[in-house]
Amino acid sequence: MAAVKPQEKVVDAVHQNAIRVETIRKELRCQKLYTEFRINPYTKFHPLTDKPMGRKTDNDEEGDRAFLEVIHRGQMEPRKKYTQPMTESQEIGWISTPLIISDRSDRRLNFPRQQSEITKFMDAAWRLQEQTRNLG
Score class of each variant (00 low, 15 high):
Ala2Gln: 04
Pro6Met: 11
Gln7Leu: 04
Glu8Thr: 12
Lys9Trp: 07
Lys9Val: 08
Val10Glu: 11
Val10Thr: 13
Val11Tyr: 07
Val11Ile: 13
Asp12Gln: 05
Asp12Cys: 00
Asp12Phe: 00
Ala13Glu: 13
Gln16Phe: 01
Asn17Arg: 13
Asn17His: 13
Ala18Gly: 00
Ile19Leu: 12
Glu22Met: 06
Glu22Cys: 03
Thr23Asn: 12
Lys26Cys: 01
Lys26Ser: 07
Lys26Ile: 04
Glu27Pro: 00
Glu27Phe: 03
Glu27Lys: 08
Glu27Gly: 08
Leu28Gln: 10
Cys30Gly: 05
Cys30Leu: 10
Gln31Phe: 05
Tyr34His: 12
Tyr34Ala: 14
Thr35Pro: 03
Thr35Ile: 08
Glu36Trp: 02
Arg38Lys: 15
Ile39Phe: 07
Asn40Glu: 10
Pro41Glu: 04
Tyr42Asn: 14
Thr43Met: 06
Thr43Asn: 12
Phe45Tyr: 10
His46Phe: 07
Pro47Asn: 14
Thr49Arg: 08
Pro52Ser: 15
Pro52Trp: 12
Met53Thr: 00
Gly54Met: 03
Gly54Trp: 08
Thr57Gly: 12
Thr57Tyr: 03
Asp58Ser: 13
Asp58Arg: 12
Asn59Val: 14
Asp60His: 11
Asp60Cys: 05
Glu62Lys: 09
Gly63Ser: 09
Asp64Arg: 14
Arg65Tyr: 05
Ala66Cys: 09
Ala66Phe: 04
Phe67Glu: 04
Glu69Pro: 02
Val70Tyr: 01
Ile71Ala: 05
Ile71Trp: 02
His72Val: 06
His72Arg: 15
His72Asp: 13
His72Thr: 13
Gly74Asp: 08
Met76Thr: 10
Pro78Trp: 06
Pro78Arg: 11
Pro78Gln: 10
Arg79Ile: 02
Arg79Lys: 15
Lys81Leu: 04
Tyr82Asp: 05
Tyr82Glu: 03
Gln84Pro: 01
Thr87Asp: 04
Ser89Thr: 08
Ser89Phe: 03
Gln90Leu: 12
Ile92Asp: 07
Ile95Ser: 08
Ser96Trp: 05
Ser96Arg: 10
Ser96Thr: 15
Thr97Ala: 08
Pro98Ala: 07
Pro98Met: 01
Pro98Asp: 04
Leu99Ala: 11
Ile100Ser: 14
Asp103Gly: 00
Asp103Ala: 06
Arg104Ser: 06
Arg104Pro: 03
Asp106His: 01
Asp106Tyr: 00
Asp106Lys: 09
Arg107Glu: 10
Arg107Gly: 06
Asn110Leu: 06
Phe111Arg: 13
Phe111Glu: 10
Pro112Gly: 06
Arg113Pro: 00
Gln114Phe: 07
Gln114Gly: 03
Ser116His: 13
Lys120Gln: 13
Phe121Thr: 00
Asp123Leu: 07
Asp123Gly: 11
Asp123Arg: 13
Ala124Met: 15
Ala125Gln: 15
Ala125Lys: 14
Gln129Phe: 02
Gln129Glu: 13
Gln129Leu: 06
Glu130Asn: 14
Gln131Gly: 00
Gln131Cys: 09
Thr132Asn: 10
Asn134Gly: 06
Leu135Ala: 14
Leu135Tyr: 01
Gly136Asn: 08
